[in-house]
Design a protein around this nucleic acid. Structure first.
Lengths: 234, 234
DNA sequence: TTCACATTTTTGTTGCAACAAAAAAACACG
DNA sequence: CGTGTTTTTTTGTTGCAACAAAAATGTGAA
């Protein structure tokens, strides 16, 4: 337990470790909708799926459970959780607080280059929407948001926000790629870019908050629709 | 990968697992100041310390790294991080957003019983302060805050807030138990209780935010003092 | 001393097997 | 057909050893 000097800038996890790889791989699959809520995940199944031994597979599952992307449904059973309305509400409240903060802080660091980047991202979103490539829409939308949040210069804040997106994405993206169809976000994104140009922290926060709220309404509606369908299917 | 029904209310980790025990044990030691920033922690050392095999010890360390309570200083070296000013600022910003939210939400659920509980907690804080039992002060202060936040009914929010406290506590509590000496929090706590009585969400948020800001100033000052001492000691 | 290099020791990762406990399947009975 | 009950299978946890890589230590020259 010696005292060791702190090597600046070496805080992150090593991406070359097998367990880390397994975690990111599973995370990606979760976001892409490879699993449905209720699916059971076992160490040995993940181990075979990714062709690694049980130890990295176990590491990945454990970490996903910590994130809340997987939950225990029994002492030896982890499943993809079915997001309840109360969960969605909690996540939305936290997103409003945290992403609002990140957006407000981002204006300080906004440069012309970042504005350009955001406009290109928005163009990609629009194009994907026109061509009904909904997965791409979702992906570019995430890039747009995090391009802004990254300007805040707060790495841990980003990590927590990313986890919140993971939890929502795992339950919604796979089921509803057409989620983004309504283009609810276009106006909000324009406002966000404008706020960065003007370096107006309050406006940036307002634009992002509005985007989150619109998304929440959309998801709540889809959730209700699905419950309705599930009910009538029986 | 079968679809399994979701057993309501079985989401938490099992507390009887060895790895979970190791995690909580190490977390407690970290908060109590058993280690100093820069201390190196190895799997085998933790394994012996807690008298378990390497697997649960590894689990505990991994999770603490995810929390940010430990960091890698090299590919095979995890240490207790030395909290830099920028870290403290980031954590404080997140605390303001998240604990402010929790406080604002708490007023809905505030009852006479919870008011009583808070007043008893505050009495304990005052008593511990009078008798210079600084560890107890810190402990009861944490209980006071989380008694409020728990009223929000948002479990994941609580978990994230707790992690933020862990990161700060690990770097400060052990070194500065006399931190609380200035009684900076008493007025803020009174205001918070008052806000709960009145069910005034904005006032509750303001009281907690003020408490966090006062604490931040105090910590910043202590941090500067320490750096000063370290400098002149060489 | 200080720095570079070589050697030794320590360390995390990975894979695996044993075991108890949980989940699933099979069964029996109404 | 459902519904408890028993049997079988599956599963997570734990401990451990091998290995490569990193850290610590030692060495020697300037």
């Amino acid at each position: 337990m010696e005292n060791v000097s702190e090597d600046e800038g070496y805080h992150q996890h090593q991406p070359n470790r097998l367990g880390e790889m397994a975690y990111h791989n599973m995370k990606e699959r979760l976001i892409r909708g490879a699993f449905s809520p209720g699916d059971k995940l076992t160490i040995r199944a993940v181990s075979e799926m990714l062709d690694v031994s049980t130890t990295p597979a176990r590491d990945a599952i454990n970490r996903l459970v910590i994130d809340g992307a997987l939950i225990y449904s029994g002492p030896k059973t982890v499943i993809v959780p079915h997001l309840r309305l109360s969960d969605l509400q909690e996540i939305t409240q936290m997103r409003l607080a945290l992403e609002g903060l990140a957006a407000a802080l981002s204006v300080k660091a906004a440069s012309e280059a970042t504005i350009d980047e955001l406009e290109q991202l928005q163009a990609k979103i629009d194009a994907a929407l026109d061509e009904k490539r909904y997965f791409d829409t979702l992906w570019h939308n995430k890039e747009f948001h995090f391009a802004i949040y990254r300007l805040s210069g707060m790495p841990y804040l980003l990590q927590v926000i990313e986890t919140l997106w993971l939890r929502v994405g795992a339950s919604f993206n796979g089921l509803y790629p057409e989620f983004s169809e309504t283009r609810y976000g276009a106006r909000n994104h324009r406002n966000a870019i404008e706020a960065l140009v003007e370096k107006d922290a309050d406006a940036a926060r307002a634009a992002i908050e509005s985007d989150i709220r619109d998304g929440f309404r959309q998801m709540k509606k889809m959730s209700a629709d699905r419950d309705q369908r599930n009910l009538s299917r029986r």
